[in-house]
C-alpha cells in the first residue's frame, strides 16, 4: 500500500544495557505536519531523536524517510537525506563565530572541489559569497542578523537556541527535529519562537517534530501529538484528544505504572 507519509517509524526499540529506553514505538509523519513529542522526564524522547538521526544504535525496528531506509545509518548520511535537528543541551561550536556555525552547516550543499578550495578558483569565491549570503538570510529569519560575528558560546541561552535552529535550516532540511527549543526561554522569547516555528512550517514547507515540556506551547502549536511514557507510545492524536486522554493524565500525574 503506497503511503503519503514522509517519516515512517516501525516498532522502534533502543536498549541501553538492561534499560529499554524506547520500546516498540511506531508512528509516521505526513509532509508539513507540525507535531509534538511529549512525555515525562526520562520517557525516551531524546533517545527517539537520537535514533532517528543515527546518534544511538537502534536495537529493533525500522526507520524510513521518503522511502529511504535510515535504520542505523551514520548521522551524516541521515543529515544528507534531509533531516536536521537541534539538541536539548545546545551543541553549538562555541569557539566559532555565529556566522561560521551556520556556514559549516551548508556543507552538504557545497559543490566546489577540494582543489578549487585550495587554490581559490573563481568558483570558490562565487560559492563562498553565496554561502555567506545564505547564512545571513537564515540569521535574519531567527532575528539575529546583528550577531553574525559574535562567538556562538558568548550568546545568551535563548539566542543560542535560535542560532541552533538557524544552523539546522542551513541544511535545507525537509524534516526538522527540535529538542526542547523553548527550554530556558522567557515567555516573550517563547512567543517569538512559537511564531518562528509556524513560519518555518508555512513558508519553508518543513515537517517539524518537536519535544517540549511547555504544554501551552505544544498545545498551541502542534497539530499532532505523540505521548511517550517509559519508552512506550501511550497516545497519539490532536491536542484536544490528548488533553482528555486518561492514560496521558496518569503518566503526568505519576499514576499507575506498567
Amino acid at each position: 500500500m503506497p503511503t503519503t507519509a514522509e517519516l515512517m517509524v516501525n516498532d522502534l526499540s533502543v536498549q541501553f544495557g538492561g534499560l529499554k529506553a524506547v520500546n516498540e514505538v511506531s508512528f509516521s509523519l505526513e509532509p508539513q505536519t507540525l507535531a509534538g513529542l511529549i512525555g515525562p522526564n526520562g520517557a525516551g524522547k531524546t533517545t527517539i531523536f537520537n535514533a532517528l538521526t543515527g546518534l544511538c544504535p537502534v536495537t529493533g525496528g525500522e526507520i524510513s524517510f521518503n522511502d529511504n531506509k535510515l535504520t542505523n545509518q551514520p548521522p551524516h548520511t541521515i543529515a544528507r537525506c534531509g533531516i536536521a535537528r537541534t539538541f536539548q543541551n545546545i551543541r553549538l561550536f562555541n569557539n566559532l563565530s555565529v556566522l561560521d556555525n551556520l556556514r559549516i552547516a551548508y556543507h552538504k550543499n557545497r559543490r566546489y572541489s577540494l582543489l578549487c578550495g585550495l587554490f581559490r578558483s573563481p568558483r570558490f569565491h562565487r560559492e563562498e559569497a553565496e554561502i555567506t549570503a545564505r547564512a545571513k538570510e537564515a540569521l535574519d529569519l531567527v532575528g539575529l542578523a546583528d550577531k553574525a560575528e559574535h562567538l556562538a558560546g558568548s550568546l545568551p541561552y535563548g539566542e543560542q537556541r535560535r542560532v541552533e535552529i538557524a544552523r539546522a535550516l542551513m541544511l535545507n532540511p525537509q524534516l526538522l527535529l527540535l529538542d526542547e527549543p523553548a527550554a530556558g526561554m522567557n515567555p516573550h522569547e517563547t512567543q517569538t519562537l512559537l511564531e518562528l516555528i509556524r513560519q518555518l512550517r508555512d513558508n519553508l514547507k518543513l515537517t517539524i517534530l518537536l519535544i517540549e515540556h511547555d504544554m501551552k506551547l505544544v498545545m498551541n502549536l502542534c497539530e499532532r501529538i505523540f505521548v511517550l511514557d517509559y519508552g512506550h507510545l501511550i497516545a497519539t492524536g490532536d491536542p484536544r484528544s490528548i488533553q482528555s486522554d486518561r492514560r496521558v493524565v496518569e503518566a503526568y500525574l505519576g499514576g499507575s505504572r506498567p
Binding site: T53, L55, A79, R91, F93, R110, G117, L118
Partner: peptide, 26 residues
C-alpha cells in the same frame, strides 16, 4: 586556503563537536 574553505570548516566542526558536526552532514 584549506582552513578557510568548506573543507576546513568541516575540520573545525569535527574539532569543536564531533556529534554536532555529524548531525550537520559532516
Amino acid at each position: 586556503n584549506f582552513v578557510a574553505s568548506d573543507y576546513g570548516r568541516a575540520c573545525l566542526a569535527v574539532r569543536e563537536d564531533e556529534i554536532a558536526a555529524e548531525s550537520l552532514g559532516v
